[in-house]
Design a binder for these strands. Structure first.
Length: 597
RNA sequence: GCCCUUGUAGCUUAAAGGAUAAAGUACUGGUCUUCGGAACCAGCUAUGGGGGUUCGAUUCCCUCCAAGGGCACCA
């Protein structure tokens, strides 16, 4: 559609004016529907370039623009006059998708699309169904998205939930744009945090209980971690002991520790899998830190004195040599231990080794990792120049309490599981007046709860922090995930009713009125495109709210299923179109669209 | 100190250099013997301060102020 109108404008302009005139104009949807379906500032831009030319030659602002153009003589005092000329020219040969053109404001040309156009777009949505909104921007491209990255032996907190939500949504948007996406997860299976947890387990045997679900066991391990982390800071004896445990984990010399390690690793990883299942994520690849570390070390050692250098006994990378905005970071400590930077180096190389044809490797993390990732990326680019353009780091804000930063070391965290459970309970309470089996009830409560959480993350641009406040962040009304699901479920029950009354969707039974919801539905593919270009799911989230609102308003003002109404088939068609768009859109956010709730 | 992010309604957030800055929430009032009230309709309130570029700036540039993050052996 955009192309058609753009072509129309270009044709007119090239007929009227010199085609060499390189005009930098825009054609977009006005934010306010009153200003038409499309709007262009071409007249204003054209007028002001002409005026600048004239100003240069006669040195005055107060002028009329006049001249003989291909189509005759024009005299323009304002951009509106120019817009008027363009409008008249277009209306000479009005295409059927256009209803009207209006000039507004300082000289905007506003296009109003015709009834016929909207009928055709509803029909297209019905035909495309679950494919509506897809595009081919990334067709044939291979993309790996790494996100979530929880550490075994540590609690899965709501920050992980945030990364998972964003990563999953980005992955789905990429897929919708034709990309072949591999989902990757990176696990810190070694390191001091593991030693801290094992120390906590050794000191609190009750936490080693193998009774109960693996979720329960994983929770105990999380508590053990908090215990160990606290002891590490407060107690010198404990610190020594934990450091000793850490060594034993590395060299696997202690049978008891090995046993605890294996159990703890399995249990926490399984608990993560349960969460992923609820959240709708299925990872294709898992990378373990212990292995990336070895690969990274090799890379660093091979490049000492080339890219890396020794300094105070450590191996460092002086990134400021290449870019003054970057800084020096340690890759191998003076104790000969690799740092996170080195492991990241190994991870990146391993990813490209896993799939040498990969076009893009995306990593999603919190923004606190932005600076050092830039340094690491610089180092990798020097070693592998061919990777430079194929790496992308997406950083999101942090989940924080009003009181300050959340940290798993201190134990002032909300685990992903506890949040999910709390929200699920709230949903269940709201569902009491409806009749579901226990299995149905549980599934729906999970889907709605996940939706409330995910939407609260995805409704805003990725960069910003989220101030976590259970009462305020998790909403079921208004601007919320459940609101979207509710609208979808209600539309579905209308479709059921239509089926019972034998009213089939008919995109040709158009009423004269054009509903606002129709003016939004056809834009979905454009929204998806913008989302994928900017890696920003919030465009989809905001769009869905607008569509849902428009549909609910349509629902409130119209009787949709009505045998006496000749246009009922069209209204049913709109309802079908709405459910397709909503379902596809929710899918992109990683949210389920239940038919009933 | 240097670098990176970010400052929009009481609160949480939108806005691709465009038009009267848009929603939710909160608050006030209204809708309902039609299809699911997790709804609909109406009202109320905002661009941190100061310059600049532009026909036009929340958006770009400069400066000041404020918040958060990062800056050598943690991840």
């Amino acid at each position: 559609m955009q192309e058609k109108i753009e072509k129309l404008i270009k044709d007119v302009l090239s007929e009227m004016f010199d085609p060499d005139e390189n005009l930098n104009y825009t054609l977009e949807h006005p934010s306010d529907l009153k200003n038409g379906d499309y709007s262009t500032n071409v007249a204003m831009v054209f007028f002001s370039t002409l005026r600048q030319d004239v100003r240069k030659s006669i040195g005055s602002d107060n002028i009329n623009i006049s001249g003989d153009y291909n189509l005759g003589h024009f005299e323009w005092k304002t951009p509106r006059d120019c817009a008027e000329s363009i409008k008249n020219k277009i209306l000479e040969n009005k295409p059927d998708f256009l209803a009207d053109i209006q000039i507004a404001g300082a000289g905007f040309i506003n296009f109003h699309l015709s009834r016929k156009f909207f009928g055709r777009s509803v029909e297209k949505i019905l035909n495309d169904g679950e494919n509506f909104g897809k595009n081919n921007l990334l067709k044939g491209k291979k993309v790996m998205v790494e996100y979530t990255d929880p550490n075994p032996f540590k609690p899965f907190h709501i920050g992980h939930l945030m990364t998972n939500t964003i990563g999953e949504s980005v992955a789905r948007i990429l897929e919708f744009s034709g990309a072949d996406v591999a989902r990757a997860n990176y696990q810190g299976d070694v390191g001091l945090h593991v030693a801290k947890a094992i120390y906590g387990l050794l000191k609190n045997e009750n936490l080693q209980s193998k009774k109960g679900s693996h979720n329960l066991q994983a929770e105990n391990i999380g508590q053990a971690y908090v215990f160990g982390a606290g002891a590490y800071e407060d107690n010198l004896e404990a610190k020594k002991e934990i450091d000793a445990i850490n060594k034993k984990i590395y060299n696997k010399s202690d049978k008891k520790i090995n046993e605890i390690y294996e159990w703890g690793f399995d249990v926490t990883m399984e608990a993560f899998e349960d969460l992923y299942k609820m959240l709708g994520t299925k990872f294709d690849l898992y990378f373990l830190e212990s292995q990336m570390m070895l690969i990274g070390e090799k890379i660093v050692h091979a490049n000492v004195d080339k890219i890396f250098e020794k300094s105070d006994g450590a191996v460092v990378f002086k990134a400021e040599k290449y870019d003054p905005k970057l800084h020096t970071r340690v890759f191998i400590t003076s104790q000969d231990l690799p740092t996170y930077e080195t492991k990241e180096l190994g991870l990146t190389e391993e990813k490209f080794k896993t799939d040498p044809d990969m076009d893009l490797s995306i990593v999603v993390t919190a923004s606190e990792q932005m600076e050092y990732m830039r340094v690491v990326a610089k180092a990798i680019s020097l070693i592998h120049p061919e990777f430079e353009k194929r790496m992308k780091h997406i950083t999101h804000g942090m989940m924080r309490f009003a009181s300050g930063k959340m940290g798993s070391r201190k134990g002032n965290v909300i685990t992903g599981e506890s949040l999910l459970n709390d929200v699920r309970d709230m949903v269940s309470e709201k569902m009491t007046d409806r009749d579901f089996s226990i299995v149905e009830q549980e599934k729906i409560a999970t889907d709605v709860g996940v939706s409330a959480i995910k939407y609260s993350v995805l409704k805003q641009a990725i960069g910003g922090d989220i101030i976590y406040d259970f009462e305020k962040s998790i909403s079921f009304e208004g601007d919320s995930g459940p609101y979207l699901q509710y609208s979808h479920a209600r539309a579905n029950s209308i479709l059921e009713k239509a089926q019972k009354e034998n009213i089939l969707p008919d995109p040709h039974a158009m009423p004269s009125e054009i509903f606002e919801v129709e003016k939004l539905l056809y834009k979905f593919p454009e929204i998806v495109l913008r989302s994928v270009e900017e890696y920003e799911p919030h465009y989809v989230a905001n769009y869905l709210i607008e569509v849902a609102r428009a549909y609910n308003s349509f629902y409130g003002n119209n009787l949709i299923v009505d045998k006496k109404d000749k246009t009922s088939g069209y209204k049913v068609a709109i309802t079908y179109a709405f459910t397709f768009v909503m379902k596809n859109g929710l899918h992109l956010l990683g949210i389920e669209a239940p038919k009933k709730m």
